[in-house]
Structures are given as structure tokens and as C-alpha cells.
């Protein structure tokens, strides 16, 4: 018996025309715009030997920028996870006047240019701004301080958790909660043991998206941050400063480091999410 294992064909046969030109164009365009430039970035960074790379990264100002960026992004994404769930719940489960408008407004951060968000948030949170004035008497600065950065990052990440949780909650069978109720569980226990586990993977996805967005965010942050080196300077700003100093190597190393860290975090979250969602795929 000859075991001739047929190689899986590259593509399933189809009567429709245009596959080759469409795929060809797609790949060429994607390569020219995204892939090759990103590879060029990695090549630029890899021209340096490890010692030089380490010298660029092992710098208090760079370290402080990384720490600030990742901590502020995580805090902002965390706050968005909680309030995103609350807003999704509100939109799916409650009926109230103006619900459609509220639903539409959730997407504003996707539509509003980041520079606009930046200037208006910093005006709002400054000591003489509507919100900043409420905190100023207690000696709390929001704008031009780390809380301002978190505020800006909350703004840009706001829609992610709402938009990932909302459809899941919409499709969530209310009978599951009713079943828990008939078995004697109160509302809180039902939420903790039945509803929340079903929403958690979506929340985590939303968290990861908001987090990834926050790490790269530039426009909305630089206006409100104050941009003091070592204190309120974020990684993207540091890259821009290096570029303005024509230090392309330094900028590339920092950019690559930030890409690698955020991609690894995303992969980690992806794995975690897969474990969380294990029993939810079917049935």
C-alpha cells in the first residue's frame, strides 16, 4: 500500500474570478505600507549591538517613561473595564429616555481627533477648568500630572470595553440568571457566579484593546501631561523628542522595545482569555 498523502491544495477551487489580482494587490499594498516599513524599523534597531541598545534603554529618563506609560495605560484600561461594564449593562438592560444618544456618544472617542480631545481635556482638568477646579482646593493637580495622563488614556480607551461587552450581554440568555434565581441565588451571587464569568472574556478583550491603544497614544496625552522628563513624559513623546534630535537610532530602539513589550502583553492576555473562555464556545 503506497501512502500518498495528498498535499492540501493552496486554495479551495472556486468558479469566481479575480482571486489572484485581488490577493496580489492586497499583499502588495499591505507590504508597502505596513510590513516593509515595520521591518525597516526593526532592521534600523538591529544595526546596533546589544551593548549600545542596552545603553539607550538603561537610562533613568527612558525607564521612567516606560514605567509611566505602562502603569498609566493599565490603570486607565482597568478603570475602563469597570465602567465599560457598567455602561454596557445600562445600555443593554435598562430602558430610559435618550438611550440611543448615550449609545452613540460612547463612540465619540473613536471619532474625535486625539488633538481635540487633548486640548479640551487639559482645559477641563486644569486648575481653572470645570473639573480641575473641584480638585484644586485639596491640592490635587490633574492636568500636567500623572492623573491627567490617566484621564486622557481613559478617554481614548472608553469605547473598547463597552463595545466588546455589549454584544455578549445582548446575546446572554436571561434564562441563565432566572435559573440561578429559581435555585435560590440572590442578584449579587447570580452576577458573580453566572453573568460575570460569561462576560469576563469580552471584558478582557476590551481591556487588552484599550491597553494597547493607550500604550501608543500620543495626541490626547501630550497636551495634558506637562511632559516633564522623568515625571510626566510618555514613551511616544520620548520617541518624537529623539526624532526631533535626529537620533533615529535611539528612537528606533525605544520604538522596537515598546512594540515588543506591548505585543507580548497582548499575546499573554490572549492566552489568558482563551483559558477563561474554555467552556463557553459551544452549547
Amino acid at each position: 500500500m503506497t501512502a500518498a498523502i495528498a498535499r492540501k491544495p493552496f486554495r479551495r477551487w472556486s468558479v469566481l474570478p479575480g482571486f489572484a489580482p485581488a490577493l496580489g494587490f492586497t499583499l502588495t499594498y499591505l507590504s508597502l505600507i505596513v510590513i516593509i516599513p515595520l521591518i525597516a524599523l526593526f532592521l534600523k534597531a538591529s544595526q546596533l549591538d546589544m551593548a549600545s541598545i542596552w545603553r539607550i534603554l538603561d537610562n533613568p529618563r527612558v525607564f521612567a517613561a516606560f514605567r509611566l506609560t505602562f502603569v498609566a495605560s493599565a490603570v486607565a484600561a482597568g478603570i475602563n473595564a469597570v465602567f465599560g461594564l457598567v455602561i454596557a449593562w445600562l445600555l443593554v438592560r435598562y430602558r430610559f429616555w435618550g438611550r440611543r444618544i448615550v449609545d452613540a456618544l460612547v463612540d465619540l472617542p473613536f471619532a474625535l481627533p486625539t488633538a481635540v480631545a487633548g486640548v479640551s481635556l487639559s482645559a477641563l482638568m486644569a486648575r481653572n477648568g470645570w473639573v480641575g477646579a473641584l480638585f484644586a482646593p485639596f491640592g490635587i493637580d490633574i492636568a500636567y500630572a500623572p492623573p491627567g495622563i490617566v484621564i486622557a488614556l481613559i478617554f481614548v480607551g472608553l469605547p473598547f470595553v463597552v463595545r466588546t461587552v455589549q454584544p455578549v450581554l445582548q446575546d446572554f440568555e436571561p434564562e441563565l440568571e432566572e435559573a440561578a434565581a429559581t435555585l435560590g441565588a440572590d442578584r449579587w451571587v447570580t452576577f458573580l457566579r453566572i453573568t460575570f464569568p460569561a462576560l469576563a472574556p469580552a471584558m478582557l478583550t476590551g481591556f487588552a484593546l484599550a491597553f494597547a491603544r493607550a500604550i501608543g497614544e500620543y495626541g490626547s496625552v501630550i497636551f495634558i501631561a506637562g511632559n516633564r522628563p522623568g515625571l510626566t513624559e510618555i514613551v511616544p513623546l520620548l520617541i518624537v523628542i529623539k526624532l526631533e534630535e535626529f537620533d533615529y537610532r535611539g528612537a528606533s530602539v525605544i520604538a522596537v522595545a515598546s512594540l515588543i513589550i506591548s505585543f507580548s502583553l497582548l499575546i499573554l492576555i490572549n492566552l489568558l482569555q482563551r483559558r477563561l473562555g474554555e467552556h463557553h464556545e459551544r452549547g
Binding site: V34, L38, A40, K44, G216, E217, P236, I239, L243, A255
Partner: peptide, 21 residues
């Protein structure tokens, strides 16, 4: 999934790659 790549790259890096080229 590669198509979504630009969403997870900082806009600053997106501009920078063209500066490098």
C-alpha cells in the same frame, strides 16, 4: 490578522517608519 496590525502600532511609530525610509 495582519490587516489589523496598524491598530496596535503607536501612531508615532507609524509616522516614524516613513521617516526612517
Amino acid at each position: 490578522s495582519l490587516i489589523d496590525l496598524p491598530f496596535s502600532v503607536s501612531p508615532v511609530i507609524a509616522g516614524m517608519v516613513f521617516l526612517l525610509m
